[in-house]
Design a binder for these strands. Structure first.
Lengths: 196, 196
DNA sequence: GCCTTATCATACCAGTGGTATGTAAAACTT
DNA sequence: AAGTTTTACATACCACTGGTATGATAAGGC
């Protein structure tokens, strides 16, 4: 049997994506061969190259998948934490969830480490601006509207704060001595509240 | 002629390193083939694999070379800017030079982007801790000793600030609208002076 | 003057991402 | 219902890659 129903085709597509995601996460992009992916997925290269243009396109789909999951979770956390007493509350809740993601191997390898190297900087920016940084910028814009930080600081600050969180995630996962999720995030909070 | 004098051997080694550095900088690690390197260097694979264990080892030497140049320049700038009136002066002078490096294509591709992906996180950390982050940590330790920031903040802050600068470099080189080297660095300075 | 050894050059190899082609079943046409 | 087209793969193949094994030649020590 070679031809499947559309549902079956979607199924093999998802199977390939799942196998690729797992391998990209554990072994990295370059150390993951197409042969290994289709082996784990229980299919062949024919199926893979039918569903995806090439290895990089497959990676981009995995990358986007991870980013969308992160995005949804951080937005939800921020929305749920909106407070009338502390204008920083929603922003901090969102960043705390993002920080949790940035500490996972999946996010580090797929999104942060390999993502930049595999797709060029341009494509990475294009996607990351939309998903990652834009949320930070929106949060800062809200703080600016409340008068807590200055307007023209929003853009440069969003870049730096997002990257600060990425670095914090790396630091945590590498178990730097004397570093915990809590004291890292406290430091970040201090950084943020110090602004004017 | 196949055998050379030691000086000639060193020369070919340097030629290979230079060709590799140029290609890694302009085309990236994966899009640079060994064949292209030895072609540009005017030698053969035999010479390359005699002088370097493998492609990754060659890359690591290039990486270290770039990092050492950056390190020397930032240290010099910081040392030259030590001031009795402003305790932040030396630190800011050093970070300003680092920021300039972080805006160059060479540093972005070789050190920041490909570096993490090619050598694993472990090796990258190991080297980056020594060269990049350690300088930031030392600067912060100095500020802590003066009582401007708290001691236990030094480590987490050094991670976050270094990554903030990296991000700033990316942002600058991608020409984000309304972003200049000056206003980026002013934002960073504000971030730093906001600490206590 | 011989022998060892450093410094390459060349031929070769296994594995890689990617393509061309074959093929069977589903879906559409009439 | 039969025939045709198209989808969803499977298989065989290819150019190229990093890396290795082997060969060659001159330098340097004895």
């Amino acid at each position: 049997m070679v031809k499947r129903t559309p549902e079956q085709a979607e199924e093999t597509r998802r199977t390939i994506l799942a196998a690729a995601r797992h391998l990209f996460e554990t072994k990295g992009y370059t150390d993951t061969s197409i042969a290994a992916i289709v082996h784990d997925a229980g299919t062949t290269k024919g199926a893979l190259f039918y569903h995806f243009a090439n290895k990089e396109a497959l990676f981009r789909e995995v990358w986007t998948e991870v980013q969308l999951e992160m995005d949804a979770e951080t937005r939800a956390a921020a929305a749920a934490a909106i407070s009338s007493t502390d204008p920083y509350a929603a922003f901090l809740a969102g960043t705390r969830v993002y920080f949790k993601w940035a500490s996972t191997q999946a996010y580090q390898r797929i999104v942060l480490t390999d993502g930049r190297a595999v797709m060029g900087l341009d494509r990475w920016q294009e996607n990351d601006d939309r998903l990652g940084r834009n949320n930070v910028a929106n949060g800062l814009r809200y703080l600016a509207k409340q008068g807590h930080i200055s307007d023209e600081r929003v853009v440069p600050m969003s870049v730096m704060l997002l990257n600060a969180l990425n670095g914090a995630g790396f630091s945590l996962s590498r178990k730097d001595p004397g570093v915990t999720a809590d004291n890292l995030f406290e430091a970040f909070e201090e950084l943020l509240r110090g602004l004017r």
